[in-house]
Simulated assay, not measured.
Amino acid sequence: MTLLSTAQHFARNTRKDPRGHLIPIMVACAVTASAIVLIGYLLWPTWEPEVSAGPARLPVSIGTTLFNVPTAAIRMKIQRHSGPQERIDLSFSFPSLEAPPEAPKRVSAGSVEEAGQPIDRIFLSISAHHDALAPDMRTRTIYPRYLEQTSTSGEDGLTIRAFRDGSPYGNEDLFSANTPDISARCTRDAATPGMCLSERRVDGADLTFRFPRSWLAQWRDVADAMDRLTQRLRGPKG
């Protein structure tokens, strides 16, 4: 009887006001929407997926030689994986030798001269040498063919010999010292600051360091930095 009387009541009200039936429909919709929002809020997950920060160092084999490489120092994302690789490119802040907070944008070891801003990083490329001529042999047997006969003394016992113009190393100078040991081939300052290249061999891999020529004013610190990086990156011998 209650349902029938309620229906009759709505029917009378509808005849009096044709839009009267919309009110209960609107109220019902509002209540339903509020309930859906409340249920969704209560059921919405409050946890957030944990971001996996990957390993701080990666074991990388180059030329069958194992290196333990800081992940943050790797300059190319495609190289950020463990296992055998043909080459890997790194950069470290100088003089701290820590991995830089972020990889330098649009600057490479080969084009860093064009960046037009002070460089505070030492670049290092490690690549398999495949039995090519060792860097120290190149310094002793190849470079002397193209060097000027005279030499000059640089900062704190550093020796400087210029390469002859027209040679494969024209517009470059060779810096060397024995204590500590350092040998670096450097371009001369011109429109862009000169850059230096220093190489060494570790078993099956060659390490190529690149840094600004101006750093040779403190060449002992640079030589020490290269030695420490070599020791730090070298993995346990098998």
Rank of each mutant, 00 (worst) to 15 (best):
D17S: 07
T46E: 11
V51I: 13
R138H: 10
A11V: 09
V69C: 05
L58W: 05
D181H: 06
D206L: 07
F92D: 07
R140E: 13
H21Y: 12
G110A: 10
Q8I: 15
F209A: 07
R213M: 05
R75Y: 04
C29T: 11
M195W: 13
E114Q: 07
A225H: 07
G54F: 08
G194Q: 08
P95R: 00
P212F: 12
N13D: 03
M1S: 15
H130W: 02
S153D: 12
T152N: 05
R210K: 13
G83W: 11
A30C: 14
F209Y: 15
F10G: 00
D189S: 03
T64C: 01
A28E: 00
R220E: 12
M26T: 09
S108Q: 06
F10W: 15
E86T: 09
G194L: 10
S151L: 11
S52N: 13
H21E: 04
R234T: 11
R87D: 02
T6M: 12
P45H: 04
F175H: 15
H129Y: 12
V31R: 02
T179K: 10
L66E: 08
I119T: 06
F92Y: 12
P70M: 10
L38E: 03
W44V: 04
L158P: 06
G235H: 09
G194Y: 08
H130C: 00
V107L: 13
T159Q: 14
I182D: 02
P101E: 05
I78M: 12
Q231A: 13
F175P: 07
S125N: 04
S91K: 02
R57H: 12
P118G: 02
A99H: 09
W215M: 09
K77E: 14
G54T: 06
R145V: 03
L197K: 13
R138T: 10
H9Q: 14
C29G: 12
